[in-house]
């Protein structure tokens, strides 16, 4: 959908409000359920921007709303070269 008309809940992945509601209809009750069905929260910001909005769309009833977020390293994008650039670790692997 075009940026000028779509209501993107997840900006990074361009997932619309409609797609999120469809996932809820399919049984999603958690952020993880939405994520697996739509790819929302899997973008560059890893859900920092959209997670709150999605959370508010989830059905309030029933299911564990206090599920743990699955936050995993890295919390910022990190360059692979920087992770490898360091003299002392050379040869640790090969």
């Amino acid at each position: 959908m075009e940026a000028n008309t779509a209501k993107f809940i997840c900006r990074c992945q361009e997932i619309t409000e409609e797609e999120i509601y469809k996932a809820i209809e399919d049984g999603a009750t958690t952020i993880k359920g939405i994520k697996d069905r739509t790819e929302a929260t899997m973008g560059l910001c890893q859900g920092r921007t959209c997670r709150r909005l999605i959370e508010r769309m989830l059905p309030a009833s029933g299911e564990p709303s206090r599920e743990r977020y699955s936050c995993r390293p890295p919390v910022r994008t990190v360059k692979i070269g920087d992770l490898l650039k360091d003299e002392s670790s050379k040869g640790e692997f090969e």
Binding site: L44, K79, L84, E92, F93, E94
Partner: peptide
């Protein structure tokens, strides 16, 4: 996930595909 695995996986991958060094990771 572990920091050791992150390091070893990337070391090994970049050994075979050196251009990976300029790319950013976003998740493990």
């Amino acid at each position: 996930t572990t920091q050791k695995a992150l390091l070893y996986i990337l070391q090994h991958a970049a050994n075979i595909l050196p251009a990976l060094k300029d790319i950013h990771i976003i998740r493990t």
